[in-house]
Design a protein around this nucleic acid. Structure first.
Lengths: 217, 217
DNA sequence: AAACTGCCAACTGTCGACAGTTGACACGTT
DNA sequence: AACGTGTCAACTGTCGACAGTTGGCAGTTT
């Protein structure tokens, strides 16, 4: 058995959180290097815990390690995006199927709430915030109740966020995304696993294409 | 841009390989703890690189970390196995689909070779070695040509190996597995993605059930 | 005897310092 | 001027030691 539960947060753990934030927000821009002594001083910790944090983020795909050179924030090619979305599609389609067959009523309500909020914002003239898109997918994953899939989706989502030089507000795309989400909710509500999977695949295919086009411009 | 290529292997990297081997072979039995100073001495290295190796294996799911207690080799419950196979199914079904649509002729030959070797061994009275089962799935993954999916499959496979207190030689199950493999090859040969996915799902469902039963006995 | 309290050994978390490697710049050669 | 060579600074990889926390044991109390 895997012994008891955690307690508080080590310096390495804190460093992971801070660095992850800085990488995802672009505060540390893609392509740049992470200087161990410099960052360690800035965080007020030693190089040991920082190294562990760097290795951890590298295992999440948010940094790439080069021996004797250091850690770099990766910036991806269109080909990388395509390959990454193949993984994301595999995971989220499976999650959509499971969610369709396992969802509870409160899961359904949560999904509908997120969609409603998106619509409301959109009609009020505000753009469809990435925050709500993430929330939708996150809620769907939770409804699937498959912890290992959920964990992997979380990691993939992070990498996608890292690559989004292209959250560009493209209204047609946003509208289509919200339609996809609504259709997904209906499929999940009906317990139609096959349809949920199909819709999710189409949705992610569209999102992937959108990211690639706005990445190459 | 992710700068140049690697070179040789750091102490931490070597420690990862050695420890992974020891964990997967059961030399370090499930449930046992990994003492940092003890193992570091045994490997002839310092605690720093060893800690990095431990963290790395933890990120692969081969160890679980408990703050201030150390690293443990996890042993899973049937529920864990089920959840893990949900992930494996998601990944390998997607890989099977991709393989069906992307495979080259040499991919096909390789798959057929592995199946042929399995049959040959089996008819010679020898059991269906786990080695060949792994080789089959590995070959199929390569045919899918999706690097991110491939990497995740590799990690999941490792965790499955870790849990196999149950490679028990169950002839009916082995026979069924070989039939599944053959059917998969046919689907891949025909470029029938839907069938490949379906067969893979059924195959893994059977394997999962087998593991759970021989885990609870 | 059971339960609570305080102490102790063992181990992890963290730190600062040294050694080895890398990439770049300056110098000398052709 | 272009190329090859030697040197150097910067950074990573590694180490040994100290500090803080945990779980367990002995001793005491009820």
């Amino acid at each position: 058995m895997t012994p008891p539960a955690p307690l508080h947060l080590s310096l390495a753990g804190q460093a992971v959180d801070v660095l992850r934030e800085q990488v995802l927000t672009g505060e540390i821009p893609p392509g740049s290097r992470v200087n161990e002594v410099e960052v360690a001083q800035k965080l007020g910790i030693s190089r040991g815990p920082l190294r562990e944090a760097i290795r951890h983020l590298a295992s999440e795909g948010l940094l790439t390690l080069v021996p004797h050179r250091g850690a770099f924030v990766p910036d991806a090619s269109p080909e990388d995006v395509r390959a990454l979305f193949e993984l994301r599609t595999a995971l989220e389609c499976a999650a959509a199927e499971l969610a369709a067959s396992r969802r509870t009523d409160v899961d359904l309500v949560r999904l509908q709430d997120v969609c409603a909020e998106s619509r409301h914002n959109y009609k009020a003239g505000q753009p469809f915030p990435y925050r709500l898109d993430l929330a939708f997918h996150q809620t769907l994953i939770e409804a699937a109740r498959s912890p290992y899939i959920a964990e992997q989706v979380r990691l993939v989502q992070q990498r996608v966020v890292l690559l989004r030089s292209a959250l560009e507000d493209d209204p047609p795309h946003q509208h289509a995304s919200m339609d996809d989400h609504d259709e997904l909710v209906r499929a999940v509500a009906d317990g139609d696993a096959a349809k949920a999977s199909t819709v999710m695949r189409r949705h992610l295919s569209r999102v992937c294409a959108q990211m690639i086009t706005s990445l190459t411009h």
